[in-house]
Write a protein that binds this DNA or RNA. Sequence first.
DNA 1: TCAATAGTGTCTGTCAGACAGTATGTG
DNA 2: CACATACTGTCTGACAGACACTATTGA
Lengths: 228, 228
Amino acid sequence: MDDVAVTVDVVLATVLDDTLTVLLVQRGVEPFVGRWALPGGFVLPDEGLDAAAMRELTEETGIDIEDGGHLEQLRTYGAPGRDPRGRVVSVAYVALVPRLPAPVSGTDASGARFWPVDRLGRARLAFDHARIVADGVERIRAKLEYTTLAVTFVDEPFSIPDLRHVYEAVWGVMLDPGNFSRKVLGTPGFVVPTGNRAPIGAPGGGRRPVLYRRGPAAALHPPILRPA
Amino acid sequence: MDDVAVTVDVVLATVLDDTLTVLLVQRGVEPFVGRWALPGGFVLPDEGLDAAAMRELTEETGIDIEDGGHLEQLRTYGAPGRDPRGRVVSVAYVALVPRLPAPVSGTDASGARFWPVDRLGRARLAFDHARIVADGVERIRAKLEYTTLAVTFVDEPFSIPDLRHVYEAVWGVMLDPGNFSRKVLGTPGFVVPTGNRAPIGAPGGGRRPVLYRRGPAAALHPPILRPA
DNA sequence: TCAATAGTGTCTGTCAGACAGTATGTG
DNA sequence: CACATACTGTCTGACAGACACTATTGA
């Protein structure tokens, strides 16, 4: 009755070069040697699921979710046959972090890099990880609508246009700068002003935007909806 | 590494007497003998998670989700110590069904009944099932906003006021009959008219409402939002 | 100077909610 | 008749999206 193994897998997402990307590791062991996969691994006997997700992420990539990041459970994948080694049930997580130092490979992985989510057709992911990534990306896109999670993708301090670039990258659309600015500033607790403006010398010219930090609000009322 | 057991637990909800209720079974075996708990049990070695949820529901209560019901994964609970028998990770599900025949007790359960969700303080649920029920109820309340799931709570054919009573029961609020009717009929594919009206002889008098069946639409654009 | 960007003002169409008014049923 | 319920009409305030306009910067 308990020859079932439980693993965690993490869809770690960030915005790089105005593109939504997820972290994949190249597998160094069987099965699927050399293929790209989500960071993850077996849950230890006395370890909570969230703790396991954070530990595996650190072990395989050197990334610590604690500083400014966000981690939440996505869903659980348990179809028989999804892992050739036997019955493996995987609890998937989604993690969001600001721009990062380059990930480090861990013991079980021979490489790690961020992949743009719209270039994943090339990656030939191991197991059912393509499906898990797709579900995770959709979760992220949906959550930007009615939560303030977008701020976990930017470093402080940030400007309203920085935040807009996050929405544009994640949703793959262009938003009206004026309407977006009004919307964010009209939501109490979304961002708090620092009193400063961006330093002189930014490329392209233009008025220097006001800088903000993350606010205390978590939910968004009213939501910022994706264009139809 | 795999002395972890995987179970499924099901929050089966229905609307009875204009009240949202969930099905609980009284445990007949240790641990927590005599306490109320969610129907559920161990996943079999070659069984998918969804299939396990349906099987356990039928075994413990005699209820088959197939006819007109809805089943979806809720989330996974895996804190160490949540089950005194050892490490047990539980994949929780939410199920919605129309009014039902009385549930039958199964082998592992000495009783089964529907509990109104606002009377669960009395029930002293086993394990962490109080938390799971709370999460499931919140999922249901949220999903009524932007999906057509409410129709899975009513028998066909049904009237717009029937559907409104579902929303009122689940959300615990009163809705404006006129605005609700306009909203539902203005959403293509939510309901399809049968051409009939409710039979003469309903209690309370009043104009006979038009009867409908479930429509093909799953999502709701725009959503029906809970009042603030 | 021109080009680019930040942010405000303003208008318009859509929609939610309040509520009046009409149609149709029971007692 | 009185009364209850179903449903339509209509108004108002909030908001999204389009877009003009001003302010501020680099080249």
